[in-house]
Design a protein around this nucleic acid. Sequence first.
RNA 1: GGAGAGAUGGCCGAGUUGGCUGAAGGCGCUCGCCUGCUAAGUGAGUGUAGGGCGAAAGUUCUACCGAGGGUUCGAAUCCCUCUCUCUCCGCCA
Length: 426
Amino acid sequence: MLDLKFVRSNLDLVAYMLKDRGYDLDLSRFQSLDEKRRSIQASLEELRYQRNRVSDQIAAIKKTGQDTSSLISDMKTVSKEIKGMETELPEIVDQLNRLLMLIPNIPHESVVVGKNADDNPVVRRWGRIKEFDFSPCPHWEIGERLNILDFSRAAKIARSRFSLQSGLGAKMERALINFMLDIHTNQHGYTEILPPFLVNSVSMTGTGQLPKFREDLFKVDGWDLFLIPTAEVPVTNIHRDETLSFDELPIGYVSYTPCFRSEAGSYGKDTRGLIRQHQFNKVELVKFCCPEDSDQELESLTADAEEILKKLELPYRVVSLCTGDLGFSAAKTYDIEVWLPGQRLFREISSCSNFTDFQARRTNIRFRRKKGRGTELVHTLNGSGLAVGRTLVAVLENYQQPDGSVVIPEALRPYLDGLSIIGKGG
RNA sequence: GGAGAGAUGGCCGAGUUGGCUGAAGGCGCUCGCCUGCUAAGUGAGUGUAGGGCGAAAGUUCUACCGAGGGUUCGAAUCCCUCUCUCUCCGCCA
């Protein structure tokens, strides 16, 4: 959510900036709602002032034993007026908020103007793309042949877009999770969080999944609870409605959770393999910092995520999302894309974003500087560190051998009892 | 699931026969004074959000005593609903 005051005083600028990301702001509707709100609030407060004063008088007069009935009857009508406005005002505020809630964040000044993913500039590349002297297979073939991935049984148990991993397939997933958590906690200084996997609608609204993206969520019937689409939701909401102290910033959390997404509207896309699932595992990095540090924090958070790929020796590139490809809440986003030889393409494995104060305003997460009196909104950032299923995919495809076996990256071996290769039979 | 108790400022804790209580008192914190150091002492200050006036310091108004409704001229105080916490019983990984 953008700052109402900022939007009000920079209407044209806001509209102009949002045009770059394909958003058309309804200026006149915004203005008329805002003016209406202000005028109602002003007269409401005026009436309340009147009521408070006269009520004090009534109390004083009553003490002397004099008659107050005419004052009371006057106030009865004032009170009615107040009640009317008190029902009217929230309706206006609500409409205004709904409008405001649907306005995406303003892109960071360094973000390139563009229409879609084709316009995303590549920021850097890392690692050498391995040449295979055989034609590399997609991971689903590798996994099924090794008997560690089973998609048909997963569909039987649940439905399509679910997966079942067995034997070393399951163990490697667990190894990757532990590997990532260990690096982020021990080497990058993040605090590990194991949050609820179901959250309420207030939390979902805070991080921006609601009200706009309800169709993407799984809801628990009969409860105000949703399955989380990412750990970002519970972890960012840890500090909802809190005022942090300057000294504790920046705060960095790392959290492993399963993630649940309905993937509505992605029919026919990535139907094979582990790439797009209703349920997948992810290790998420979340940061809270003061405004002047968030640019730098995005760089270091992205580097922290990249470090996992470096240690696993998986080639990747980093792209900076252009204005047209930017997510709703983000001011700036780096996507890390890992190379998948089985499909001969770079595939997103992490998305690292600076939300500036956009989420903090919705979630009301503030901090207090040492000397200053008031409070300010923190900046929030997050990024995958990494998507575990897709990391498994990348390992299978990049480390596959001509005979169908898969070499285990060295960094991962301590987590797999020293095993160096997965051969036939799992 | 059954029975009961509770929810007030950074914390503890008053206030529940409705009316200068944004909220006593204490602790903590900030600034000042004092004292060879420390400790103690002492004076003042110490919530958030929104609006008006002001260049600013500031000043003023409104709202907020778990959340939402109701009664009333007036609600932290009375009524209803919900949420959460605690105790006991039952059940359970």
